[in-house]
Each structure stands twice: as C-alpha cells, then as structure tokens.
Write a protein that binds this DNA or RNA. Structure first.
Lengths: 207, 207
DNA sequence: GAATAGAACGAACGATCGTGCTATTTTATG
DNA sequence: CATAAAATAGCACGATCGTTCGTTCTATTC
C-alpha cells in the first residue's frame, strides 16, 4: 500500500525555486520576494509553487538555510583547508569578499540584506538568521583563537573582537561597493583588513 | 483675490507625518512604510495624507531629507563645535553612536536600513540617499584632514580611508546591537574606534 | 496496464497596496 | 461675518499580496 519513501520529482523544482529565491532576495530583500513573482519567473503557478512550502515564512527560513549551505561550501569549507593562522584568516576574508560579489547573489550578500531587514521583525526568519550569524562569528573567532594558540597572533588578541571587526569591514565594503559604487571599495576593505591583521601579529616591527 | 502666501496649517501635519514616517521607516524600512499605515497611526485619511505628497516616492525622499536635517542638528553641528583634531573626531563618533540609539529612530539608524534596502533599487530615493551618504563621508574625511593639517594626526593618514573605516565600525555596531542584541556591542565599537584612532596618532608609543 | 500518491494548476478569497477623483470641512483673509 | 483657499475626508479603481480549495495531470509502484 504505502508507497516506498521514494518519489522525489518535486525536489528538483523545490531546489530551483530556492535557488532563484536566494537570488531575488539578495536584490529586493527577504520580504520583498513574493510568491507570485517567483512563480512567474519560474513559469509555475502561484499555488503550485506555494504547495512546496507551507507559508511564506517557511519559505523565507528555507531561503536562509539554502544560502547558508552555499556559504559553507563556497567560503567556510575551502578556507578551512588552509593552514592555521594568518593564511586561514586571509582565506576566510578573501573568499568572503568573493562571496559578496558572486553572481549567485546579484544583490550582494543576502545575509547583510536580511540582517538589516529582520533586526526589528521577530519571528522564525529572524531567529534562523541570528543563529546563522552567531555561528559564523564564533567560527571566525575560533579560527583566530587557533592562530593565537599557535603563537601566530599576539597573545593579547581578542578573537571575538577580531571577528566583530572583520564583519564590520565586510559591512563597510558592502556599503561602499553596492550603494556608493565606490571603485576603491575593494582597496578600502583590504587596507582595513591589513590594519586589523597587523595589529595582532606577534612580531612588532618596532620603529 | 489671491490670498497672501500665508496659510500653513497643513505644514504642521506634514511635519507630524514625516516625523512618524521616519520612526516607522527605521523599523520596517523605507519601502515598508505604507500610506494606509501612516494614515491610521496618525488618525488621518489615506487620501488626506497622500495629498501632502505627490507620490510615495516623493514621500520617501522627504523622509530621507527629514532624517538628514535631524542628523545634522543632532550629530554634525554639535560635533563641529568641538576643537579640531581628536576631540572633534571623537565627538562625531560618540554623537553618531547616540543617534543610532535615539528613540526618534527606534529601529536603529534609518540610513543604515535604507542603504541596504536601496542599494539595488534605482530611483530618486536612492539618488538622494547616495548624495547624503557621500556628503557625510566627505564631511568626516574633511574633519580628519583638518586634524592632519594641524599635526594632530600622522601626515600619512588617509582621511577618506579613515571615514570609510569609521563608517564600517558604525555598521558593525548596528549589526551587533540590533540584530544580535550583543551587550558588548558598545564596547566592541569603542575598541574598534580606539584602534582606528590610535593608528593615526602622531606620537608612536614605540616599544 | 491499474492503482495510487505526488505535483502542478486555475480560480477565488479577503486584505492591502498606491493613486486618482469629488465633496466637505477647516482655516486664513477681506 | 463672508469668502476664497487650503486641508482633509470619502469613495472607488486596478493591482498585487498570501492563502485555500478542488481538480487535473504526471509520475511511481504493483
């Protein structure tokens, strides 16, 4: 009677929907994506698309999850393949920069957009985002902490402050490049990064 | 016949509308504010409120202008009253921080929200915002430049980079405090600021 | 191929959006 | 107080929103 658990033709369309939704959300925001717009773009019916999710809220959460998985595989995992200490931190930063410029999110980093959008809107989407951002920040802090343990960085380095500052650099880059279209945005971000990194190197190049 | 140019009872309601619209926009975004919502909150009719502006787009632009005027009178002008160099830069930063926490914008800095929201949406609102942000950044750069000219800061200080980095600190603060509700957000921002300032002080406290 | 479960559709719902019109009320001026 | 003008209300419009329902089409399994 009960069919074997198989049967997953709709899974591919679900993936296609989420893929496009991530793109769209990066441009017009998480709450900006509408079922109707998504359906039209993908050549589906509103109701057919809606059936894949139970609500728009659930869709938004899944959009965040999809973006997170992609972030892990494109930024985090490759960066962690680098040797501990400065190379790993540098790889994190560079891949993070690339992620922001990725065509997969033509509107810039989805998390940046969602962070501002959801900061005053309680609900499952906000909760999911906060969790993801906390994870990301503590991952960065851990990477820095490992560098300190290896004596690659000064012992008085505050890993959490480092992670916070690195995030701020990213936000500054986003602002300069996406809103202001500043051609020096890249250089600005790198300069800020080098200053941050320089402040916690062990060897003080004294005078 | 033609009444003297006087007659300005509607001017006060217009101000009240914009005042509330700024509050609202800081929480739910510039495009989140709806005519109906504004009218209901203020006890006006949709059409009556709408008549004060020619379009929603015009309303958004005026919201930005209103916020800008307030920013100038609450942050910029008082800060410029401080002596050139470090005190003035420090005042800018502190007042900027206070501005973000102001009850007048319960959703955090309106410009931060609008920056992310409008970065991919061409139109007059975006144009206005870009102009305001450019003005603000160059004002900060000028203040730093004046400090350099006065030998308060190192001669090789890049004023525009400083302004960019200061903005990034602000964005990081916003992220930490508003989204993550991090109680250390304030301390983090101040630590970052001191590091930024320390890097361009003239006297190197060598080893 | 018959039976069955999953996927997609079409139509409709109540609500809200921005935006016009036309009255009516309120205000300022003579 | 009368009058002209400005400010606001009332009503309606087309569009779009998220969501539901019942049906149809398309796979999968026997």
């Amino acid at each position: 009677m009960r069919a074997h658990p198989a049967a997953r033709k709709g899974e591919s369309t679900r993936a296609a929907i989420l893929d496009h939704a991530v793109k769209l959300a990066s441009q017009i925001g998480l709450s900006g994506i509408s079922i109707g717009r998504l359906a039209e773009d993908l050549g589906l019916s509103k109701s057919g698309l809606f059936a894949h999710f139970q609500s728009k809220e659930a869709l938004q959460v899944q959009v965040l999850e999809t973006a997170s998985e992609r972030f892990v595989s494109e930024v985090v995992r490759p960066a962690l393949a680098n040797p501990r200490g400065e190379p790993r931190v540098r790889a994190l930063f560079e891949r993070w920069l690339d992620w922001t410029k990725s065509q997969k999110t033509p509107g810039g980093c989805l998390f940046v957009a969602a962070s501002v959008e959801l900061d005053d809107q309680p609900g499952p989407a906000r909760d999911k985002l906060v969790q993801l951002q906390r994870d990301w920040l503590s991952l960065m802090a851990n990477v820095v902490q490992a560098g300190v343990a290896e004596k690659a960085f000064r012992a008085d380095t505050d890993p959490e402050q480092f992670a916070h500052d690195l995030y701020a650099i990213m936000l500054g880059y986003h602002h300069a490049s996406r809103l202001l279209k500043d051609p020096r945005a890249d250089a600005r971000a790198h300069a800020a990064f080098e200053r941050l990194l320089g402040a916690c190197r062990r060897v003080r190049k004294s005078a």
